[in-house]
Amino acid sequence: MAAGGDHGSPDSYRSPLASRYASPEMCFVFSDRYKFRTWRQLWLWLAEAEQTLGLPITDEQIQEMKSNLENIDFKMAAEEEKRLRHDVMAHVHTFGHCCPKAAGIIHLGATSCYVGDNTDLIILRNALDLLLPKLARVISRLADFAKERASLPTLGFTHFQPAQLTTVGKRCCLWIQDLCMDLQNLKRVRDDLRFRGVKGTTGTQASFLQLFEGDDHKVEQLDKMVTEKAGFKRAFIITGQTYTRKVDIEVLSVLASLGASVHKICTDIRLLANLKEMEEPFEKQQIGSSAMPYKRNPMRSERCCSLARHLMTLVMDPLQTASVQWFERTLDDSANRRICLAEAFLTADTILNTLQNISEGLVVYPKVIERRIRQELPFMATENIIMAMVKAGGSRQDCHEKIRVLSQQAASVVKQEGGDNDLIERIQVDAYFSPIHSQLDHLLDPSSFTGRASQQVQRFLEEEVYPLLKPYESVMKVKAELCL
């Protein structure tokens, strides 16, 4: 049975990233139509530049190519590739079939990587351009969430054990800070992308030097003109047959890092959902379990974690691919890159769409948070109580021993009897502590235990987050809708 299948058929496997999760716009960027249309555009740009620099290419040939950029006979191309065992030459023939007058000058002087690699770089750039505003929107939604809850005390956790208090907004800023680093890295790697350009079979530009009869300047002009037509500021000066596969490492490393950030955020949300302090959106008709109707599973956060793990592992592909590119190139890269580049971007696209949807509907339960604080705060307040007693004339050592005994009794009630923490009640009825009984409410005010959390939130948002989001103001209103 021949390899390949009808990918629109229910009898043929289709990647869930495309069929179930990723956005239509990201799927289109990695589609065959987008790819092969870009090949034709690159052939047109090459012909236009070659004509401008004096090669015998007519206006009629150029116009014929322009008129057929979208006229792609995919069936013919597939048949040609089956016959020739070469995808680029299959599309040269297919393009030439609908451009008979231009057929002889299509791909003039070029090698397969002229269309293959340059198209990949265009796709990487455009895919990054799709991700950047999506990530900015996630940051914006979380920034709104953090600002609104900047002063809401909550129990902090280290080692997932109760620690000092923080605020809900401050905790959210930990998430935002990681995503801001990801946004900066995505922008950097996007701006650092260079075009492969017009380089020939081993990167020496020998074929173009021959076409222009040894004119170095025209060869350099050709490279520059096509690079500018493709919208790049610069091209690699040095290439082998391909652009260095280190570029793929750079791009997928940034995406993998984004995956790590999203995994951490969504894990926190899942843990908070278990504590009943916070939940992701839950639709009115949504079913959490087929057997347990009360369940409210954090399905979206779980999906993000599941896909983020996949995204983090994909960076190993370009690392290994770059390491086995012998001399000017081997074909070890080809099949692998067809999979890992598309999957990385479709996965990143999915987790950003999902995280935006989550961040637009996060639900906080202040009463649950308050109750958990009441359970733990008495123990945390013991040092403040000791200091207040010393100020009232008591002995630190005597007070410490009193607190120690009462704390152990209260802990026994919590752990052995399943009761509430009654340390404060014990202190309130103990005559030894009568000098500070009137101060206990103040000493137990949760806001006095959150330090500068709310001020940190305000400063972080104003100095770091809002300036970073400013270039994306025009796209901030787009909502994230999930079908599944």
Rank of each mutant, 00 (worst) to 15 (best):
G418I: 05
V198M: 15
I424V: 15
I237Y: 11
Q205I: 03
S289Q: 09
R196T: 00
F433Y: 08
K246R: 06
H310D: 03
S454I: 09
K187C: 11
R137P: 11
T382R: 05
D223M: 06
D215C: 15
P298T: 04
F208L: 13
G96D: 05
K391V: 14
V198D: 00
I265T: 13
L444R: 02
R14P: 12
D144W: 12
V226L: 15
L131H: 10
S31G: 11
Q41R: 13
A344M: 07
R303G: 01
G288C: 04
Q456E: 03
Q439A: 14
C483E: 12
E250K: 09
D6L: 11
N274V: 06
M65V: 08
E79T: 12
S434F: 09
K66S: 14
S447P: 12
T321A: 03
I424W: 11
L193Y: 05
V92Q: 00
D11A: 06
I265R: 02
F30L: 14
E481F: 06
D430L: 07
M89Y: 07
L84W: 15
V405I: 14
F327L: 09
D398R: 11
F212D: 04
L44P: 02
L352E: 03
I373R: 02
V88D: 00
E60P: 09
H310N: 08
G104E: 04
V324W: 11
V168I: 06
H91D: 03
T111A: 00
A78H: 11
K470Q: 12
Q63A: 09
I105Q: 06
E228L: 12
A392W: 02
R14E: 15
G393V: 07
I72V: 09
Q458H: 12
Y466L: 12
G4V: 15
A308Q: 05
N118W: 03
Y13T: 14
P100C: 04
F236R: 07
T227G: 11
S253H: 14
W43Q: 06
L46Y: 00
D178G: 03
C98H: 12
A256T: 08
E328Y: 01
D144R: 15
I424T: 11
D349H: 06
L46F: 05
A480C: 15
L128D: 03
C113V: 11
N118V: 01
C180P: 00
V189A: 11
D87I: 03
L258S: 06
R33T: 14
K295N: 05
R245H: 06
A110D: 08
F212E: 07
L135M: 14
L469N: 08
V247H: 10
A335H: 00
Q286A: 02
A260V: 04
G5D: 14
T267R: 03
H93A: 15
V405C: 13
I427C: 06
